[in-house]
């Protein structure tokens, strides 16, 4: 009997070793050293992003808002995710993104219509009957009254350009934030617990508290819920 057992052990040593390693792995609840080193990756990203967002609140410079989004790049470390921390980490992420997106929404200029059209003006007809083409240099306008009007029109045009440029830059940051959030939540949607309504409610509560528009909340909730496939 003993010799049979020994023979069996020798024949199956390779598989036994594998099984023992699997058991050790299954039984382990500690974070590996590598994971421990990255345990604060998410928090470091969130803290840096929050600092940029705070700067934006004071500066109103879109560069700071851009930084707040950019600093969330790489915020999810796969090595850091565990079943135990997944729910909490997703809430931290959603909370920070909600603050960024809320700030983006309130940064749009309600007086600017992105569909409005504007263009470089032409000087008014001068007293000598000459009408110069559009966008000539103001020094070419000899009639002082016409030149003054033209310079005013050019200044208005420059303001419209600045508003359009601001809108486009903010819109691009907006698209980028939503794209990054979508990609972030996709990672979680693949592996998160399904049909845990209390978690969804908590996430929705975070979005509501941030003051995000209803239309956008619906979109983000679609990102959060696990995909059916």
């Amino acid at each position: 009997m003993l010799s049979l057992m020994l023979k069996w052990l020798v024949l199956n040593a390779r598989y036994l070793a594998t099984a023992i390693l699997v058991l050790i792995a299954f039984g382990s609840t500690n974070i590996s050293p590598a994971a421990a080193q990255t345990a604060d990756v998410l928090q470091r990203h969130v803290t840096a992003s929050q600092e940029a967002l705070n700067r934006y609140s004071a500066s109103h410079s879109l560069q700071d808002l851009y930084s707040a989004v950019s600093l969330m790049g790489g915020s999810v470390s796969l090595h850091e995710l565990t079943p135990q921390n997944l729910i909490e980490k997703r809430r931290v992420l959603v909370s920070n993104w909600a603050q960024i997106i809320s700030k983006i929404e309130t940064s749009y200029d309600p007086t600017f219509d992105p569909r409005s059209r504007f263009s470089c003006p032409a000087p008014p007809r001068e007293s000598n009957g000459i009408q110069l083409p559009a966008c000539v240099r103001p020094t070419a306008v000899s009639d002082t009254g016409a030149r003054a009007k033209y310079e005013t029109d050019l200044a208005t045009f420059q303001k419209q350009l600045a508003k359009a440029a601001y809108y486009q830059r903010l819109h691009n940051i907006d698209l980028w934030a939503m794209s990054s959030l979508h990609a972030t939540l996709n990672v979680f949607a693949d592996v998160s617990p399904k049909s845990v309504s209390s978690d969804y409610a908590a996430l929705d509560n975070i979005l509501q508290k941030a003051g995000i528009s209803n239309a956008r909340r619906v979109i983000i909730e679609g990102y959060i819920r696990p995909r059916s496939t």
Partner: peptide
């Protein structure tokens, strides 16, 4: 420094301001 907006299939990315072409 006119910002450029979204892409329109068949045309390209649309510049945010119109061009006023006038002979005078």
């Amino acid at each position: 420094s006119v910002a450029v907006g979204s892409d329109y299939p068949g045309f390209g990315s649309k510049v945010d301001a119109q061009d006023w072409d006038f002979s005078g």
